[in-house]
């Protein structure tokens, strides 16, 4: 008896990149970022991981803008706003890290234990 072969990867559809690819990429990137935020102990690494999560959002937004609402640029405009705000947030984050480094000579989150979590 012959077992029917299921084609998991169809070469024709694989060649054309569709919205699903972007959404999967973005979901993977978001999860990597989320894992990093929860697992990393270095404050700068955590900031970088937050940036990864925000960039996952940007990929989503731009992809949806192209495939869902190609006539207007809502998603793209949203992405630009996200980039701008993220830049402000990272600037502030680095400033705080510098201030706390001067105070404690450490950027390890485990050393910030004056206030119990």
């Amino acid at each position: 008896m012959q077992i029917p072969v299921v084609k998991l990867i169809d070469p024709v559809t694989m060649l054309s990149i569709g919205p699903a690819h972007y959404v999967i990429l973005s979901a993977v990137l978001f999860c990597i970022g989320l894992f990093g935020v929860l697992a990393k102990r270095n404050a700068i690494m955590v900031l970088i991981c937050i940036e990864l999560m925000l960039n996952a959002v940007n990929i989503n937004l731009v992809a949806f803008s192209k495939y869902v609402t190609p006539a207007d640029f809502i998603g793209q405009i949203f992405a630009i706003f996200v980039i701008t705000v993220a830049a402000a947030e990272v600037g502030l984050g680095l400033a705080i890290i510098i201030a706390i480094y001067r105070n404690k000579v450490s950027v390890n989150l485990d050393d910030f234990d004056l206030l119990k979590w």
Binding site: F30, G33, L34, V37, A43, V46, L47, I50, M53, L54, A56, V57, N60, V82, E89, L92, G93, I96, I97, A99, I100, N103, L109, F112, L114, L115, W117
Partner: peptide
């Protein structure tokens, strides 16, 4: 105060990333 600040920015950053997603 600084410690509260760094905790707030990291957690607020994460929560706004989840919200945005």
């Amino acid at each position: 105060s600084l410690e509260a600040g760094i905790k707030y920015i990291l957690l607020a950053g994460m929560s706004s990333a989840v919200l945005l997603y």
